[in-house]
Design a protein around this nucleic acid. Structure first.
Lengths: 352, 352
DNA sequence: CTGAAAGCGCTTACAG
DNA sequence: CTGAAAGCGCTTACAG
């Protein structure tokens, strides 16, 4: 940082903050070039003598110069910011995804602005705050945007990518697992192991993920000639909801022997509920299959058999889409569906 | 959004993006005032006729005008951005904290820029990217910044707040639980229930949280006249580390009857390890106490007795500090310590 | 290939 | 109390 002083960049009156940052002006002066030329050196498309560019880039590195993205965005209307809206943070699936998404976005030079709403209601205000930074795009995890918020994104010119859970809005992008297929896999898995009476534990009823997994599961079961599975409404994607669902499960006159849950966290709650409240054995009395394959599913205390999500592929697809959208936000909305991974068989299922 | 058109704000040449945003200029024209006056209306300290201010604010609301923070920051050197650096996302304690911190920061009008590094090594680059946005401060969760990164924060003028885990750097802020006291509480708890031979499962050895909890625990145990607890090095704050530590625990010639773990997630792993690998009963053979009181600790399948962190207080303190720092970054570094909550007694401990 | 100039959307001394 | 002007750090037509 000595070079900063070499340059003679003084703190200046505006910087009570003590921020002495190298600006394009400093760099230009140091190099004896015009600001325009220096600026151009940073853009591959810009026409500038190769030798000049090299000189600029080299000196920039030495002085630790980086273009100020705030100033850039004022001119370019691009911010290199990806908004990330999250609400259902209690599902461990999302921290895992957030972390990997953020890393991927950093790699393409984007920064992530995080909006996290404990309650769904509070999301709107936060989205407004986010939008004032004009993010190049916003990625929505496990949250449902109000139609007002969606409209605001549109007027702000920030396209929305729904990750995992899709939106009913036809104007937004989506990256998701082929959940219906995943539901079908769960059905095949249980039927192959000779289960006869199946059930589905439904989470948040309106979530696309929930509906697709349910429908895929039911459809396949019926196709295979078994009776249509019972559906128990747990109400949300949470451990508690799964735990409560065990109560309703206990009331069934004919007890199912195979259960597919909307996701892992619901499955874990359901299993605990079934064990504690109904005194049943898993997998002795019933088999339970989850969806996601979060790290916890692999813990010995749980050993959950589950349909794995193709997280790597989903993250890559999202990052790629982000790169495209950052370059040209006018792409037409598209929904990408990735095939689920193979079922991971652990200890919550067995052959009947 | 109709008003935008009323105003006659055209998309303009620069906005291929279709971003038609109301600017201060538009608002001024609409109100027949100067840009200066309009701008002033948004600052409580600025001198402007009350009636004028009201008018401006009202119309701004109607048109959906919000000052562009990018442009603002160019003048003010304040960005209203809080950087958030996270690495240990597998510990569920952090998602809970992130979510609440983000919400609190949004309430004081700050936005959160997230850096998440899967491996500690990759954090430096991401921090550089973050710093180019000149965050008013950066909050560090469960991560250790390289000294180079810390220096960069300093030259960038962004003060660092270490949350939970403290830094050895004397130049940074900190908000943490009184971990030593928490360790002492765990000791008292086990001793009161007549445990005689105690052990501590250590996580990442260099983490301040780990050291303080350990030392507080050991000190209190010795003070109370018991023999100094065995310390087993699990190596990291993870389930896997706890699980592995059970192996080392099994090798001990004299088996402890009470174990205090560096945090909940380590405790859960340790318990599973002890049960699966050693065939021991918890709490039959040994009692286990954790630290944090994450949601999972309360699950029936775990029922972990644990020292609760004062998360609410820690989050409030951090947000308050952020507000102060955003206003004046030259505050002197201070470390806030909050008392741990009472131990939550569940089913992994019993009286001997 | 390079430079001078305009302007992105703001804030804030400086006059009046 | 208000307005005209300068300037924050950039990019990018426009000349040369």
């Amino acid at each position: 940082m000595e070079e900063v002083n070499e340059l003679g960049v003084s703190a200046g009156p505006g910087s009570r903050k003590g921020r002495s940052r190298v600006t394009v002006k400093d760099l230009a002066r140091d190099l004896g070039m015009s600001v325009s030329t220096v600026s151009r050196a940073f853009y591959a498309e810009a026409v500038v003598a190769p030798a000049t560019r090299e000189l600029v880039l080299k000196r920039a590195r030495e002085l630790g110069y980086r273009p100020n993205p705030m100033a850039q965005s004022l001119k370019t209307n691009r911010t290199q910011i990806a908004g990330m809206v999250v609400s259902d943070i209690t599902n461990p699936f999302y921290p895992e995804v957030m972390s990997r998404l953020a890393a991927g976005l950093h790699e393409i030079g984007m920064n992530v602005m995080l909006i996290s709403a404990p309650q769904a209601g509070e999301i709107d205000d936060a989205v407004k705050l986010l939008l004032s930074y004009q993010p190049d795009l916003v990625i929505i995890l496990a949250a449902t945007l109000s139609s007002e918020a969606m409209r605001e994104c549109r007027t702000a010119g920030s396209p929305c990518i729904f990750f995992n859970r899709l939106s009913s809005d036809p104007d937004s992008f989506g990256v998701s697992c082929d959940n219906a297929k995943g539901g079908g896999k769960a059905a095949d898995f249980l039927i192959k192991r000779n289960h006869k009476r199946l059930a589905y534990i439904s989470a948040y009823a309106d979530a696309s993920t929930n509906m697709e997994r349910r429908d895929g599961f039911l459809k396949r079961v019926v196709e295979r000639g078994l009776t249509r599975p019972v559906v128990i409404e747990a109400g949300s994607f949470s451990y508690e909801a799964g735990y409560e669902a065990a109560g309703a499960f206990g009331e069934l006159e004919e007890r199912p022997d195979g259960v597919f849950c909307a996701n892992d966290i619901v499955a874990l709650g359901f299993i605990d509920g079934v064990r504690n409240r109904l005194g049943l054995d898993v997998p002795g009395d019933i088999s339970v299959v989850g969806f996601d394959d979060i790290a916890m599913a692999g813990w010995p205390s749980h050993g959950l058999t589950t349909v794995g999500q193709p997280v790597d592929e989903m993250v890559s697809a999202t990052v790629e889409l982000a790169a495209t959208l950052a370059a040209d936000p006018r792409e037409k909305p598209i929904v990408t569906r990735l095939a689920p991974r193979a079922i991971v068989e652990r200890t919550t299922t067995r052959r009947r």
